[in-house]
Computed example of a mutant assay.
Amino acid sequence: MVHSMTAFARASREADWGSLELELRSVNQRYLDLHFRLPEPLRSLEPGYRDALRQRLNRGKVECTLRFTPSREETLSVNAERLAGLSDALHEVRRTLPEAAMPDALTLLDHPGVLEAAGPDLEVVTASAQALFNEALDALLDARAREGAELAALIRSRLTGVREQVSKVQLQLPEILKRQRSQLLERLETVRAELDPQRLEAELTLMAQKADVDEELDRLTTHVGEVERQLTEKGPVGRRLDFLMQELNREANTLSSKSVVAETTRSAVELKVLIEQMREQIQNIE
């Protein structure tokens, strides 16, 4: 099944500790390229996010953005144990140096570890952020699958056009070869008297063989069948499809170069247009 590399997913969650919003964006890229924007308190989630993306995606540039908004400002509390230890130390100083000035309450609160900021439980927030990521990743994969199905339908419609052009040339081939021979005879009419009849016939046969496009039409048909097969394969197929577009384009170019009549030229041009349209869509396929 074809999957697109272009997709977007967003998931959010609100609780008494605040809110989380996670976005996943993916665009086409030759390899898997991962980028993360996570709030500092939740930075530890990145390795797990990275592993999950690598397990379920093969190609694409993916941006993961997580936003965390606490529901309220941090509350401050006094560390009683730390303050008691500081008080004991001050009593010891007073016994040794009775004349020493004692600090006031604000100075005591400013001492490291006495005043603590209490925020939301990070374990709870982390667990919610992980669940949110799993939800967004499932949605991203669904979006890539839906767009992949649309891309496959577009490619199949162009393949139908390729088949039609191949069939058109095949049906016209006897008449095309007849007209080619006639045109070649006309061109050689001026020098017929100077050439040996057997040599002339051999030259005509050789030129007709060079203009014969049967092999190119057969290979075009074979490549079209292989593209159809790849569209039903599991796993990433984008690179193989891109290679097949190169092969289709090669045959279309050869068909064009061999053409000596307008009908074949028109079909070759139409084939190139159809192949280029498919190639553009395939750039987004995983």
Results as ranks from 00 to 15, higher is better:
residue 160 T to R: 12
residue 6 T to K: 04
residue 265 T to A: 09
residue 118 A to P: 00
residue 132 L to Y: 14
residue 74 E to I: 13
residue 38 L to S: 01
residue 108 L to Y: 08
residue 134 N to E: 13
residue 100 A to V: 04
residue 54 R to H: 12
residue 184 L to R: 02
residue 50 R to S: 10
residue 81 E to G: 13
residue 69 T to K: 01
residue 203 E to I: 15
residue 227 V to C: 05
residue 10 R to P: 09
residue 232 T to N: 07
residue 12 S to H: 15
residue 101 A to S: 14
residue 160 T to D: 13
residue 262 A to S: 07
residue 256 S to D: 00
residue 122 L to W: 03
residue 27 V to N: 01
residue 243 F to V: 03
residue 239 R to C: 00
residue 69 T to S: 02
residue 272 K to E: 06
residue 175 E to R: 13
residue 181 R to L: 15
residue 36 F to P: 12
residue 147 E to V: 01
residue 40 E to A: 10
residue 47 P to E: 05
residue 160 T to M: 11
residue 130 Q to I: 12
residue 155 I to G: 04
residue 97 L to V: 13
residue 86 L to S: 05
residue 47 P to A: 09
residue 138 D to T: 02
residue 142 D to F: 02
residue 191 V to A: 01
residue 150 E to Q: 10
residue 245 M to H: 08
residue 271 L to D: 00
residue 180 Q to F: 14
residue 220 L to Y: 06
residue 35 H to G: 08
residue 17 W to H: 11
residue 30 R to D: 13
residue 275 I to S: 02
residue 214 D to V: 01
residue 225 G to L: 12
residue 224 V to D: 02
residue 153 A to H: 07
residue 163 R to E: 14
residue 87 S to T: 06
residue 272 K to D: 04
residue 262 A to R: 00
residue 135 E to N: 14
residue 214 D to E: 11
residue 173 L to P: 00
residue 80 A to W: 05
residue 255 L to G: 06
residue 98 P to R: 08
residue 229 R to Y: 03
residue 66 L to V: 10
residue 158 R to L: 08
residue 42 L to F: 04
residue 42 L to R: 03
residue 159 L to Y: 04
residue 142 D to T: 00
residue 19 S to L: 05
residue 68 F to W: 14
residue 181 R to D: 11
residue 89 A to P: 02
residue 140 L to I: 08
residue 113 G to T: 02
residue 102 M to E: 10
residue 161 G to N: 08
residue 203 E to T: 15
residue 77 S to W: 11
residue 121 D to Q: 11
residue 159 L to E: 00
residue 26 S to G: 04
